[in-house]
Design a protein around this nucleic acid. Structure first.
Lengths: 239, 239
DNA sequence: CGCGGTGTTGAAAATTGTCAATAATTGTGG
DNA sequence: CCACAATTATTGACAATTTTCAACACCGCG
């Protein structure tokens, strides 16, 4: 018979390698379980938080798929990331104790709610957690550097190829196929993230399909030639 | 009579509001002083660290001006940021204990070297430091979101306007003029950061000058109409 | 004074965006 | 369950923006 506290325990969670530190002893693992206050369900299309809301917690995605996005005063919006199971949302809110973007569920989702004061308290005592928090934030910074590389220096084809490869790589780390993927976002959202218009995204998909690199059936993508995609991203290194 | 330990004390540093937590009591302030192992001078054009080097320390810029940049296998490079006095360099290295970019001095510079293990040890004891580290990293993440907005959705004019406004705003926070600035970087480096070619940067400067928004004399920029620049970045909000 | 790095400018080419029409798909309410 | 509306996706033609290539000017420094 399971009670609630067992149900939300990180120590039993199949995602723990993704969102929690590794190599904890049993006592530490038990304390880590206290981090998650509760779970929260978010329906597709609704938001986990919005720009301007008070920041209190980080969120670990348990199931589902999110986007984070900014909306400027003049109505443009920019998708800043897509998050899948095991990834952490909300780091932007720490600096001013206020969220600076919207986090929207692209399919029905569930997150673990981790009050940040608990994370801070506990990471003062559990060195592995402290290290983990630092690494999480640093990883975010590094991965945004890659996005800058993508947005700053690449053409539409290269961007989309890099995007697809990044998605399958993350899906593969979660036990999914490295050839098949279902896009949870629209062409417009992909375009926003990649700095191109939805029509260009669509055309580039079609072009990849024409060239036999992928098969596209709406949001289902079948990767036929991942080597060719990799060569697109990194033209020089063509074996 | 000053000894070395006084000389490198953060508590006496005029930049401490920029790079250190505020509201410390005296005992805490004394401990913070231990963070800085020493100072290091970097000549213009040489690097503070390079991609692949072991990460051991964060660096606070004391004087001078840096860029951070990535170089891809196929030789493209992307400037990921410019750092001035009081700003922190090296957060990218935390995740894999290895730097993932190059940090190059654009003018003769001096940095405070803060071994990261000391930061971690001390932030376990001094809550204000822990908070400060978290806020620094979160701030970096948020400001990169703005860069994504810039690279993803803006045209050349808007990008350059936003870039200039960001620079003067940071300079102003350091007590410099909000109309005059000297660019420490080449047009090519600006272009890399903003995702455009150096020729486009040059043309856009000339266009701003033609329209009376700025005066350009090589790397000296005089901002004549900051309101117009702001309107360029945020077209809708035109008062 | 000349040299190398840096910056400017022009003209043509390439890429991407815009606008518009149409198709496919999904969700909703009868 | 079907039909309709709304959303999402594809494609074409044309326009706008940016890049590329090239020539030349400028500056600082030995």
């Amino acid at each position: 018979m399971l009670n609630e506290s067992v149900k939300v325990a990180c120590s039993n969670c199949h995602l723990r390698e993704l969102c929690m530190p590794v190599g904890l002893n049993e006592a530490e693992a038990r304390r880590i379980d206290e981090l998650v206050a509760h779970r929260r369900s978010i329906k597709r299309g609704s938001t986990l938080f919005r720009n301007g809301e008070a920041f209190t917690s980080l969120f670990a995605v348990r199931t589902g798929f999110f986007k984070t996005s900014l909306t400027t005063e003049d109505g443009r919006d920019q998708v800043t990331g897509f998050q899948m199971a095991g990834e952490i949302i909300g780091l932007d809110g720490i600096v001013n104790e206020q969220h600076t973007c919207d986090a929207t569920a692209l399919e029905d989702a569930e997150v673990c709610v981790m009050p940040f004061h608990r994370i801070e308290d506990l990471s003062r005592e559990v060195g592995a957690l402290q290290k983990h928090v630092h690494r999480m934030m640093s990883r975010e910074i590094v991965s945004q550097h890659s996005v800058m590389l993508l947005l700053g220096g690449m053409r539409a084809q290269e961007r989309l190829a890099a995007f697809l490869l990044n998605l399958v790589q993350r899906l593969q780390a979660r036990g999914f196929s490295s050839q098949e993927l279902i896009l949870r976002m629209t062409r417009e959202e992909i375009g926003s993230y990649l700095g191109m218009k939805l029509e260009t995204v669509s055309r580039t998909f079609s072009r990849f399909a024409d060239e036999g690199l992928i098969e596209v059936k709406q949001r289902n993508i079948h990767i036929l030639d991942d080597q060719a995609l990799k060569r697109l991203v990194n033209p020089q290194v063509c074996h």
